[in-house]
Simulated assay, not measured.
Amino acid sequence: MAKRKRLNVVSLIGSRAQVEEQRATSAQHQDLSQMQQSGQSEEVRGGSQQSHEEQSQPSLGNINRKKVRGATLMSEIWEFPEGQRVIVKINNLFQPVGEESTCLCRFIGTMVRKAEFAPINYLNWHEMPNNRKEEMWSTIEVCFCSIIGL
C-alpha cells in the first residue's frame, strides 16, 4: 500500500511571515519524506529473495477475495480546521498541477456525489440552478487556494 504524501497546507490565521514559515516547514517535511522513501526502497531491494514459484502461489485466505479500490471520501479535507487551506499550484494556462491538483479533483468528485450539492433530479449541468453551483464554488474556496507556480 502506497504512503500518502503530505499536502501543502497553509493556515490563513496569522501574519504573512507565519505563512511563509509554514511553507518552508512543509517543504522540509517533503524533503525528509522523500529521503525516507528512497531509503525504504533500497531496503526492499536488499531484502530476502523468494523464488518465483513461492511468489506466484496465492495464499489460501485470498483466493476468493476480489480486490476493490474502495470509496474516495477525502475526509482529511472535509474535516480541515477553519482557516486552513490546501495550496494548489497553477500553471500559466490556469490549470492545476502537482499532487494538490489530484487532491482538488478528488475533492470535487466527492462533492458532486453529495445530494446537498448536486441532487440527481438534474440530468444536465446546464439545468442545475446557479445558486447550487455558487455553493459548490464557495465550498471549494474554503478548502483550497491557488498560487501561480510554474
Score class of each variant (00 low, 15 high):
Gly109Arg: 05
Arg113His: 14
Ser146Glu: 00
Val10Asn: 00
Met128His: 03
Lys5Tyr: 01
Leu60Asp: 12
Thr139Met: 15
Ala2Arg: 11
Gly98Asp: 05
Phe94Arg: 14
Gln57Arg: 15
Arg16Asp: 14
Val10Asp: 00
Cys105Phe: 03
Lys114Tyr: 10
Glu127Tyr: 09
Ile77Glu: 01
Thr72Cys: 08
Gln22Thr: 15
Val19Pro: 01
His126Lys: 13
Ile87Cys: 13
Ile77Cys: 09
Val97Lys: 04
Tyr122Glu: 02
Trp125Ser: 12
Val112Thr: 13
Glu141Gln: 15
Ile120Ser: 14
Asn131Gly: 02
Phe117Gln: 07
His29Trp: 08
Lys66Tyr: 00
Ser38His: 11
Ser146Leu: 05
Asp31Gly: 05
Ser138Gly: 05
Thr139Tyr: 08
Ser15Phe: 00
Leu60Arg: 06
Ile148Met: 05
Ser38Met: 15
Phe117Leu: 09
Asn64Met: 02
Met111Gln: 08
Ile90Tyr: 04
Ile87His: 01
Ser33His: 02
Thr25Gly: 08
Ala71Phe: 02
Gln18Pro: 01
Ile120Trp: 13
Gly70Ile: 00
Ile147Met: 06
Gly47Arg: 00
Lys67Tyr: 01
Lys67Ile: 03
Lys67Asp: 00
Phe107Ala: 10
Cys145His: 02
Val44Ile: 14
Gln95Trp: 02
Glu134Asp: 10
Ile147Gly: 00
Arg65Ile: 07
Glu79Met: 11
Val44Asn: 07
Glu43Ile: 07
Glu20Asn: 12
Gly70Cys: 00
His126Cys: 08
Phe80Thr: 03
Gln28Ala: 14
Leu73Thr: 15
Asn62Asp: 02
Val97Leu: 03
Asn124Ser: 14
Ile147Gln: 05
Gly39Lys: 09
Asp31Cys: 03
Met74His: 04
Ala24His: 07
Val19Gln: 11
Glu53Ile: 04
Gln28Lys: 13
Leu93Gly: 02
Val88Gln: 04
Ser51Val: 06
Ser56Val: 12
Arg45Thr: 10
Leu104Glu: 01
Glu76Lys: 12
Gln18Ala: 07
Glu79Val: 03
Glu99Leu: 10
Cys105Arg: 12
Leu7Cys: 01
Leu60Phe: 07
Cys143Phe: 03
Gln55Met: 13
Asn92Ser: 09
Met35His: 10
Ser51Pro: 07
Arg132Pro: 07
Ile87Asn: 04
Arg16Val: 09
Gly149Pro: 03
Glu20Trp: 06
Arg16His: 12
Arg65Asp: 04
Gln34Thr: 01
Phe144Glu: 01
Glu127Met: 11
Ser48Ala: 10
Arg6Gln: 06
Glu43Gln: 14
Ala27Tyr: 01
Lys89Thr: 02
Glu127Val: 08
Gln22Arg: 02
Val142Leu: 11
Gly39Trp: 06
Pro129Val: 02
Met35Cys: 07
Lys3Gln: 06
Lys67Ser: 04
Trp125Thr: 11
Arg45Met: 10
Tyr122Val: 05
Ser101Thr: 00
Ser41Asn: 11
Phe80Val: 04
Phe94Thr: 06
